[in-house]
Computed example of a mutant assay.
Amino acid sequence: MAEYMFSDAHLDNLHVIAHGTGPARLYRAAASALRTLAVSEGLIQKVIRTEDLQTDGAKLASALLAGAKAWEDRANSMEDEEEAMVIVDFQPLPQEGFPYAMRGFPSEGMSSAPGGRNIGAWL
């Protein structure tokens, strides 16, 4: 029976914490998995030489990080292709229940600004 590097729960969690929607989110989860693998392999393997075997964890980690970068770039390009602008209805006056103070206007309790100027003059 094959042994997998990540459990289903681990992959589910990578998908949950990835931002984005649709395939972009899946690509970011894949990039996170590759980055996790790169760090693990880089720390474990390092550079090992025996009589007939040589491993280089840094090269493997670099290759895995390059793969993660490719998945991240693909996710970014997918998001760039989505709508970049949203049209909303124009509201000339504040909505009910939102006083001017909550929309960036000075509150009535402030009678003067720094330098002694009257805030009411701003309105």
Rank of each mutant, 00 (worst) to 15 (best):
R117L: 00
M5S: 12
L64I: 01
I48A: 14
Q54H: 15
G42T: 02
A33E: 12
A75P: 05
L64K: 00
A70E: 02
P23I: 15
T50V: 03
A113H: 00
L123T: 09
S62D: 06
R117G: 03
A101L: 07
T50I: 10
I48V: 14
D12V: 09
K69C: 03
G120R: 15
Q45R: 15
L123Y: 15
R117I: 01
N118S: 11
E81W: 00
S40V: 10
L123M: 15
A66K: 03
R74T: 04
A68L: 01
A121E: 14
E3P: 05
L53G: 14
A58G: 10
L93M: 05
A101K: 03
M5H: 06
S7C: 06
Y27D: 09
P99L: 02
A121Q: 07
S40I: 13
S112K: 05
T36P: 08
A31P: 13
A31K: 04
V39W: 09
S107G: 10
D8R: 01
E96R: 11
A84H: 14
K46L: 13
S77E: 05
N118W: 06
A31G: 12
W71I: 01
L11E: 09
L37C: 11
V86I: 05
V47R: 14
M102W: 12
G42Y: 01
A70D: 04
L65I: 02
Y27N: 06
I87N: 11
M85C: 11
Y27H: 12
